[in-house]
């Protein structure tokens, strides 16, 4: 499978996430679109890792070339999990204070 097809697919997924962040006002949906963008990047990292590994195998290099990208994906998932727990705690706190999860309430970042 040519690498370009994976890039197109991940770009489309990323753009859908961008459109969601720009057009929705529900804070939870915005947060879910950020997760969508993170997943698109993860898939692209794995695709590039396999591409690099295939090239290295053809040139007779070590069999584990390109494994770093998959470790990066693992760490991105770790950071995403931590980020989600903090972000949802902030959303719950915001709902408790304003009784709304509309992000336009937060555009001044005070009160």
């Amino acid at each position: 499978m040519p690498i370009q097809y994976y890039i197109y697919f991940c770009l489309a997924l990323f753009s859908i996430g961008v459109v969601g962040v720009l057009t929705r006002r529900n804070a939870i949906i915005v947060f879910m679109c950020i997760e969508l963008m993170l997943n698109a990047v993860n898939l692209l990292l794995v695709a590039f890792s396999k591409m690099y590994n295939g090239l290295a195998l053809q040139n007779g290099a070590s069999a584990t070339a390109g494994i770093d990208a998959q470790i990066f994906v693992f760490f991105i998932m770790v950071v995403a999990a931590a980020e989600v727990s903090i972000g949802l705690a902030i959303i719950v706190m915001m709902y408790r204070n304003t009784h709304s999860i509309d992000i336009n309430f937060l555009n001044r970042l005070k009160n």
Binding site: M1, I3, I7, K50, A65, Q70
Partner: peptide, 29 residues
């Protein structure tokens, strides 16, 4: 991406390769 010359002819091998398995990943990690 369409104009990028370094990407021309690069392919992703599907359903083969061992770097995604637990053993090499655990060793690297």
């Amino acid at each position: 991406v369409k104009q990028a010359m370094p990407l021309v002819g690069k392919t992703v091998p599907l359903k083969e390769g061992t770097i995604g398995l637990i053993h090499p990943l655990g060793k690297a990690l």
